[in-house]
């Protein structure tokens, strides 16, 4: 820690000045920049589209149930027709507000996961296999969490 605050330039004796993967990523060229643009676009599109779906679902929900009394005091899970994907799709086709909202929320949760998946593709294109592996581990943890059998 004694060296903190001092800037150590790349050491030419160790070949750091011409290392292919320079530690200074700002100099690394075009591909990382490309990935940043794509990731930014995915995140923005995912949030915008899912929020729009949630909003539309909200209108249907309030139109149908606006006058009823909500009860969230005791935990009862969610309504039966949105327990699984098939149910949500069927109920969405019947314009059930809560199903449309849930569809939007699932898309919202999927947005960062899609971002992770696209990063993996990006790292493959960059031939950065270390980070392809790291990204796949993250993806595996999220998918593992989804399939972990704690669905209740």
């Amino acid at each position: 820690m004694g060296l903190q605050g001092k800037y150590n330039p790349p050491n030419p004796l160790k070949g750091e000045h011409k290392a292919k993967n320079s530690p200074f990523r700002g100099l690394r060229g075009f591909k990382d920049k490309d990935m940043q643009v794509i990731i930014g676009w995915i995140l923005r599109a995912g949030v915008t589209i899912s929020m729009l779906i949630v909003f539309i679902g909200g209108i249907f929900f309030i139109y149908r149930h606006g006058g009823s009394i909500p009860d969230y005091h005791v935990f009862k899970g969610v309504p039966w027709f949105i327990h699984n994907t098939n149910g949500i799709i069927n109920a969405t086709l019947n314009f059930k507000g809560q199903a449309i909202i849930q569809l939007g929320i699932i898309l919202l949760i999927a947005t960062p996961v899609i971002r992770v998946a696209f990063s993996a593709i990006g790292f493959i294109i960059e031939k950065d296999y270390l980070y392809t592996a790291i990204t796949l581990i993250v993806l595996l943890i999220i998918v593992g969490s989804m399939l972990s059998g704690h669905a209740g």
Binding site: V54, G57, F61, G97, I105, I109
Partner: peptide
């Protein structure tokens, strides 16, 4: 995990 357990209720989350 929360989604599958029914912790995410559309009426509240919206």
């Amino acid at each position: 995990v929360y989604l599958q357990r029914g912790y995410i209720h559309p009426g509240l989350a919206m």
